[in-house]
């Protein structure tokens, strides 16, 4: 209770309810996440149920256009899948990959950053050299590369159902460096502070110091990066899927849907690409707005 009232009394909460963009973007993010989670309940069709697909209803435009079918609000794709339902299910995969890969990157990055920053010495040098080399390559390239390697290593039949795991791994691995560097810097600053010295004088061991004293004090920036990276991870997933090296068309994500629609752009069937695209942008935009607000709110001097 006291924690809750402490939170509602805090500057962070106050800034949140006073910032319309933060409120709206949080609301939008929640709606999109809820829609994606509840996809089987709210989607009018099941796009993965091959039996229900009818090739006769392929290439239908949205309902308000000529030839539109009220059963398919936003039209259908080349296989007769309902675009609206596909978006619900697609957002699910996009969010799943996004959250899972950010979690992976945070786990790796924060652990290595803490070790590096508190212990220093050789462990620090080794971790930071790897980080430097990796940082000289853009994340998307590393993700592509890991994806390519996975294709070479995994047997062909396993590739399809492993695709999501490969993506999570590829995106997670390609993004850990930023956390590691931030946490390392913060941990170095914190570990030189006198409260850590006080704990050491008392006799408290390094693991307890890292866990109880340093970690809680470096989590602020991690939260900000994680929010902004969630948007980035969703974009990366969509990009990889769009490039044809991500999620396969049988269980499409938003990126895959856009890729499918891209082939029909010139024949005027814009809806297959554009609706998933709009949802993707709304999702990324609202997460970005939240991240922006969070950064400003946690770092008042930057305003």
């Amino acid at each position: 209770m006291s924690f809750l009232s402490g939170f509602t009394d805090s500057d962070l909460w106050h800034s949140f309810i006073r910032t319309p963009t933060a409120l709206v973007s949080a609301l939008l993010t929640l709606i999109l996440i809820a829609g994606a989670l509840a996809a089987p309940l709210v989607a009018p069709h099941n796009p993965f149920d091959l039996a229900s697909l009818d090739i006769m209803s392929a290439h239908l435009p949205p309902v308000w256009m000529k030839d539109g079918d009220p059963a398919f609000l936003l039209g259908t794709d080349d296989q007769g899948r309902d675009v609206l339902s596909a978006i619900f299910y697609g957002a699910r995969i996009s969010l799943l990959v996004g959250f899972a890969s950010v979690l992976l990157a945070v786990l790796i990055g924060v652990t290595l950053g803490l070790v590096s920053g508190y212990l220093g010495g050789r462990a620090d040098a080794a971790i930071m050299r790897v980080a430097d080399v990796q940082l000289s390559f853009p994340a998307i390239l590393i993700a592509l590369l890991i994806d390519g390697v996975a294709r070479g290593v995994l047997p062909r039949e396993a590739q399809e159902h492993m695709a999501v795991y490969v993506l999570v791994f590829a995106i997670g691995i390609s993004n850990w460096v930023q956390y590691a560097r931030t946490v390392r810097g913060a941990a170095m600053v914190e570990s030189r502070k006198e409260y850590v010295q006080a704990a050491r004088i008392i006799g408290i061991g390094p693991v307890a110091i890292l866990w109880r004293h340093i970690l809680p004090n470096v989590l602020g920036p991690v939260l900000v990066i994680a929010t902004i990276n969630l948007a980035l991870a969703i974009i990366t997933e969509a990009t990889l899927s769009f490039l044809g090296v991500g999620v396969p068309p049988t269980t499409p994500s938003l990126g895959t849907l856009i890729r499918i629609g891209n082939d029909y752009l010139f024949s005027g069937e814009w809806w297959i690409s554009i609706f998933p695209g709009v949802v993707l942008v709304l999702l990324v935009l609202s997460v970005n707005l939240l991240g922006d607000w969070l950064r400003d709110a946690l770092n008042p001097k930057l305003r």
């Binding site: 502070k193 409260y195 010295q197 004088i201 008392i202 809680p216």
Partner: peptide, 15 residues
């Protein structure tokens, strides 16, 4: 053996 530090702002864990 215990110690009192110089900077009262960094010698207490803010969390």
């Amino acid at each position: 053996i215990q110690m009192v530090f110089q900077d009262p702002y960094s010698s207490l864990n803010p969390r």
